[in-house]
Amino acid sequence: MATVDLKDVRKVYPGGVEAVKGVSIAIPDKALCVLVGPSGCGKSTLLRMIAGLETISAGTCSIDGKVVNTIGPTERDIAMVFQNYALYPHMKVYDNMAYGLRNRGMPKDEVDKRVRGTAKTLELEHLLERRPRELSGGQRQRVAMGRAIVRNPKVFLFDEPLSNLDAKLRGQMRVEIKNLQRKLGVTSVYVTHDQLEAMTLADVLVVMNAGLIEQQGAPLDIYEKPSSTFVASFIGAPPMNLLPLRSGQLEGAVTLPAVADNAATLGFRPEDCEVGADDAALDGGLRLMANVAGVEPVGAESFLYCDAAGGRIVVRVPGRTEVRIGDQLPIFARREKLHFFGSDGKRV
């Protein structure tokens, strides 16, 4: 239905603060693009610029091939789900959903058909006569979704829509949002600071930091090949282990493959570590001895927090573990699972 193209978009606030410092993203039709990053990285500002709620200081934002920089939010034909849902407290659920349709002059019976149809999809039918304050957090979230869907807009914008829900509900809604987005085939931009949401939802994942894009691409590509230490430590839970290299050497490592001269940091993921593995399979990989400082059994897996090579690393082992605090363990990581970053934090 629509593509969204950002070309070198910048946002400078009147005080001189630059929140977004030149961002280019091309979101294909029907794709779900997730903007992820720590708070203050400019992701919400970027979303609000796409919505038309913030002016664009430089660069262009196009929806469906048309530059919309000077078009207000009213005419952009987008729908947005806010973090606090922003439901109209004085209107019933029905009127909340019908508001956008009525504003566009849709005939009454058509409005009714659309609202009831959407309510059915989202299982909101029994709530239509209630007011927002009579709903639970999860129900409000669904109404906010319904208000966006009912309009059948060109683009959906989500501003951390699940951050006010409890963990279980968040998991359910995540799956539901993904399914709905697929089914409706509406191009979407989704802002979150939760890397799990980002990984599971995204067709296009954009990792932002300090107003700039650190990396964009398919979620698994980013997971497998993080372009910087920032991305490496942001994507994945627990984050990638990062150990400092001193002139190509790792303090306390038993073996270490040949390292590029300019590499300053070695990274490997907790799930790529093996404890007591077969030496032959680890040819050319990393071997080091680690002192266990903490054990976290989660059930399906356990995390070992270890001191090794001048830093703290996390090792993921499947199932139960017999390892106790104070144990010394040999840790292995295969060569192809190692990541190297330069002194500027970029991948080498």
């Binding site: 038309g52 709620l53 729908a79 806010f82 922003a86 109209y88 407290p89 004085h90 508001y99 208000r147």
Partner: peptide, 29 residues
């Protein structure tokens, strides 16, 4: 009145005058 309500109404296609009468004024009641 939360700013996001006004923004939501703008995205919902309400022009400033309409926003005032359908959102701001009732909430100011």
């Amino acid at each position: 009145i939360p700013k996001t309500l006004i923004e939501a109404a703008a995205i919902d296609g309400a022009k400033p005058f309409k926003r005032f009468w359908t959102i701001v004024f009732p909430l100011l009641a």
